[in-house]
């Protein structure tokens, strides 16, 4: 195809590509759209007939009724996860400093101090 393009005017060539290109893009998408509008439902219908309606699902998790697991339990789990996610502490600095408490008098064993003052 390139060989036919060599000696032509690039502008007219451009128009040619413009029109054919747009047509091809549109036709490709129209075909896709038509297929998914009409072709696919038909395909699925035929598939259903072939398998006689027995549509085996790939993996079906059967819900086993558990009488112990009530809505309240679910609510508690939900709430606790919510609280855990929402109220997580941000990281605190791991450095602990021990501050020296300068107190000359400690009332740890003073009976009279305990009756007069509230600790």
């Amino acid at each position: 195809m390139i060989y036919t393009l060599i000696n032509t005017d690039p502008i007219s060539e451009g128009y040619f590509i413009l029109i054919t290109g747009l047509l091809i893009v549109f036709s490709a998408l129209v075909i896709l759209a038509l297929f998914f509008n009409y072709g696919l439902p038909l395909m699925l219908y035929i598939y259903k007939i072939i398998t006689k309606g027995k549509d085996k699902k790939i993996s079906e998790i059967k819900a086993i009724d558990n009488s112990d697991f009530t809505g309240e339990v679910a609510a508690v789990i939900g709430a606790s996860i919510h609280m855990y996610m929402g109220e997580q502490h941000d990281h605190e600095s791991g450095i602990l400093t021990i501050k020296q408490v300068k107190k000359t008098y400690s009332p740890w064993s003073s009976k009279i101090y305990g009756t007069q003052n509230r600790l």
Partner: peptide, 19 residues
């Protein structure tokens, strides 16, 4: 599927710029 055509319409930009 008809919305697929809109994706085609925007390609006018490609070919117009080409020109």
């Amino acid at each position: 599927p008809k919305l697929m055509l809109l994706g085609g319409a925007a390609q006018i930009g490609v070919f117009a710029t080409f020109l």
